[in-house]
Design a protein around this nucleic acid. Structure first.
Lengths: 194, 194
DNA sequence: CGGCTTCCATACGCATAAGTATGGTAACTC
DNA sequence: GAGTTACCATACTTATGCGTATGGAAGCCG
């Protein structure tokens, strides 16, 4: 005897490929790319992998699609934030201060950076890195630095950002307080923006 | 009919726990902590896991022992390098320039940092990070910075170091040339050392 | 209402890896 | 040289995860 469970309780909306990609990105943010497995992901979504292999041909295909989606979204977000401020110094400052906000996107970025060994993730993060370094270089050049110095300063800035994210994400027990974090960001701004 | 293979060819020296730890550190440097598995490691050493479980009670025990060994060695190396130069400015400069050398130790450091999720690796890297930041802070204070500024500058310096390592290790295809690398390090020195 | 498509469950095969149990062989000891 | 210990191989068991095969149920379409 099997009574059909109420639709509201069971929430039995069938899944789309998008649902899988969103869930995959969540797992990547929480546990990294290597921890992204098909069966646990299916369990998380309340289905079995029979569903998964209808939407995707393989685990790699899911990763590929998820990464593409993230890159597009990242590009769009970056462009949007980028055009808010015009004055180069303020633009850089705004960028630095953004580090404290939009935590979620930073978590994913950080997880992807750590997974750069993966053949699909590596090229992606290299593209992203070069784009951001180029953007920073442009900013420093507008502030009067030589192309050579601007490039190196951009590298230094970007890589300190990467290091900071990893540190801040990992060692949550030793996290700075909000005030300390603010002070740190202001110090970085004073030290790196001419 | 089985003729005993010559001892020189077979190299059948029996293994010690140390041998396993050294090999484990190699694998960590090459493929990270998560990729460290017992059976592949045994194959690498030309034995089976029957040998492994005589020396160690579990995979975790191996990781533990390997990390302890690395931390001791890292401390010793750091102390040694540290006492070579006395003048604070030169000391910091020497430290920065060291980034280009002793590649192997940096590879391990980098791999461990990426594996900070692991319950054994996390606390270790936190200790190591705090030690190094404290060392840098001391250097900056000796150069006349306030304790607060010195701490933040030390963080910035250390985290840019971490970010650089990850970037440089991962994206070998987009690596800078030697000259470019030198120029970058000199830029960092000029930018961060007052 | 019968049929076709879409989405999913179940059940399999295969591979890798942790850990255990047990027996074998080298090496040292007396 | 007989016995003990130290080191290792082989052969399990269990668990996880990828991918496939196949059948079943829901939803649309005529």
């Amino acid at each position: 005897m099997h009574f059909r469970v109420s639709k509201a309780l069971a929430e039995r909306t069938r899944l789309s490929a998008d649902d899988w990609e969103v869930a995959a990105l969540e797992v990547i943010a929480e546990q990294g790319v290597t921890a992204l497995a098909v069966e646990p992901l299916a369990k998380r979504l309340g289905v079995t992998k029979g569903s998964f292999y209808w939407h995707f041909s393989s685990r790699e295909a899911l990763i590929q699609a998820t990464l593409e989606r993230w890159e597009e979204n990242d590009l769009a977000t970056f462009e949007r934030t980028l055009n808010l401020v015009k004055e180069p110094r303020d633009k850089l400052r705004a960028l630095f201060r953004r580090t404290r906000e939009e935590v979620h996107s930073h978590v994913i970025f950080c997880a992807l950076f750590k997974a750069a060994d993966h053949p699909l993730v590596g090229p992606l993060m290299q593209r992203v890195s070069e784009r951001r370094i180029a953007f920073l270089k442009d900013g420093f050049e507008r502030l009067g630095m030589s192309p050579r110095d601007a490039l190196n300063r951009a590298r230094l800035t970007y890589l300190s950002y990467v290091g900071f994210l990893q540190y801040y994400q990992q060692f949550k027990s030793a996290r700075m307080s909000i005030e300390e974090l603010d002070a740190y960001v202001e110090h970085v701004i004073e030290s790196l923006i001419p």
